[in-house]
Amino acid sequence: MLLQVHNLRKTFPIRGGLLGKKTGEITAVDDVSFYVKKGETLGLVGESGCGKSTTGRAILRLHEPTSGQIEFEGKSLLALSEEEMRKARRDLQMVFQDPFASLNPRQKVMDILEEPLIVHGMGNGKERKEQVQELLHLVGLNQSHAMRYPHQFSGGQRQRIGIARALSTKPKLIVADEPVSALDVSIQSQVLNLMADLQEKFELTYLFIAHDLSVVKHISDRVGVMYLGRLVELADRDELYERPLHPYTQALLSAVPVPDPDFQKQRIILSGDVPSPANPPKGCAFHPRCPHVMDICKEVRPEFADQGGGHFSACHL
C-alpha cells in the first residue's frame, strides 16, 4: 500500500467571549480509515462540509491531525519532524480547488513552477528553467506562458498551472481537492483527461476529492462516501454505483442527472438538514435523515466493516 490512514480525527476549537476561550469544538473528520494502492485513484465524495477537504489536508499535515495514524510507504507521517515532513512533501503534492486563489498573483508562472524545485534543491538554474518549460508542455501550455502572471489566464489554464506545480517535484501521491469544481463543464473534461494521461505516464496515485459523482465515476478506481466527517461506504467504482449499500449513497446516486429526457429516474429526497458538526447526533450520524431508520440507529454507532468483496459500509441494515 502506498498510503494507509487509520482512525484519522481532526477537530477545530470553537472560541467565544472577550478572551477567546474555547467553548466547544467542531469534529471535521471523525475516525476515518482507508488505504490507497500505488497507481490507483481513490475518489472521496459527499456533500459540502462533510470533511473531504479536511481529510486531504490532514493527510499532508496542512491541518495537523488531532489523532490517528497516517502511513506513507510504511512510514508514519505524524512521527516526522517539521524538517523531515518538508522533505517528504516532495513525494506528496496537492492540487487546490480554487485556481484563482492557489497561485501567487505577484509571481510569474516561471517563478511559481520553479519555486518547488528550489525548495527541494532539484537541479541548477539552467536545469530548472528547462524543467519548467517541460512542465508547461506536459499540461498543454506554451513556453511563452512562463513569463505571464496568473491573472492573464483563464480558470482552466490556471488549473493546468496548478497541476504542473504539483508535478514539478515528481511526486508519488497527489491529493486533488475538487480540481474541476470551479471550471466550466467543457473545461472539466479536458482537465480530467489531462490528469488521467499524466497518471498513466508518470504512474501517479491520486486521492481525488469531489462532490460531483459523475466526475468521480469517470476518473476513480475506488470510491469512498463521507457524511458528517465519517466514511459511510467504500467500494470499487462499478460495485458502488451498481449496488450501493448505504442509504446516503443511494440518495446521492439518485440525484445524478441522466442525459436522456425520456428516462424516468426515481429520486430519493432526504428530509431535514445536515446536523451541525459541533453537535453531531448520537449513534449513526445519518439517522435523522434516513428513510430506513431503526431504534438501534439512534443509539449505536454502526461499525465501518467489510460487507463482502472489499465493499465497506457503516450501516445497521
Rank of each mutant, 00 (worst) to 15 (best):
V223W: 02
T249D: 08
P179V: 07
I70T: 02
D295Q: 14
A251K: 03
I161L: 15
Q93T: 02
F34T: 00
T23M: 06
A182C: 12
Q143V: 10
V191A: 05
A101R: 01
L270W: 13
S276Q: 14
H292V: 11
M122T: 03
L173K: 04
L3Q: 00
Q264S: 13
R289L: 12
E40T: 02
H6N: 08
I296L: 04
R237W: 15
G272M: 15
L173E: 06
I112H: 01
A305E: 14
G309V: 11
L141C: 14
M147I: 12
Q307D: 10
L2P: 00
L167G: 06
L141W: 05
H137M: 09
S271K: 15
L44Y: 08
E130K: 03
H120G: 07
V225K: 05
R222Y: 04
R90Y: 11
L117Q: 00
R89F: 08
I174H: 03
L194N: 04
A196D: 06
L135S: 02
V216Y: 01
R267S: 13
K52E: 01
G39W: 03
T55V: 14
S53R: 02
P150E: 07
F202K: 11
I209G: 02
G49P: 09
T27R: 01
S220Q: 05
G51F: 05
G68V: 02
V258I: 15
A28T: 04
S313E: 01
Y241F: 13
F72A: 01
E114C: 04
F208D: 01
N124D: 09
I26A: 01
K172V: 14
V274R: 06
L60N: 04
R61H: 12
I296Y: 04
G39A: 12
K201C: 12
F100Q: 04
L141G: 07
R148W: 05
Q131R: 11
P261A: 11
S181C: 15
E25V: 03
A79H: 08
Q264H: 15
L2S: 02
P244G: 07
L213Y: 10
E73Q: 10
L60C: 08
D306W: 10
D306C: 08
G20D: 06
I161C: 09
P65T: 13
V223D: 01
M110C: 06
V180C: 05
L2E: 03
S254I: 14
Y206H: 07
T249F: 09
E200C: 11
D236K: 07
Q266C: 14
Y248E: 13
I209T: 09
C50F: 09
G224S: 10
R148G: 10
E83S: 13
R243L: 10
G46Y: 02
L78W: 06
V5F: 00
L117D: 00
E178P: 06
S168V: 07
L2Q: 03
G229E: 10
I268A: 11
G17C: 05
Q152S: 15
V109I: 09
H246R: 13
G283Y: 07
V132Q: 00
E130L: 04
E242P: 10
I112D: 00
L92G: 00
S53M: 05
F12E: 03
D262R: 14
F12L: 06
K21N: 11
K298Q: 15
F34K: 01
L8P: 00
A88V: 11
K10V: 03
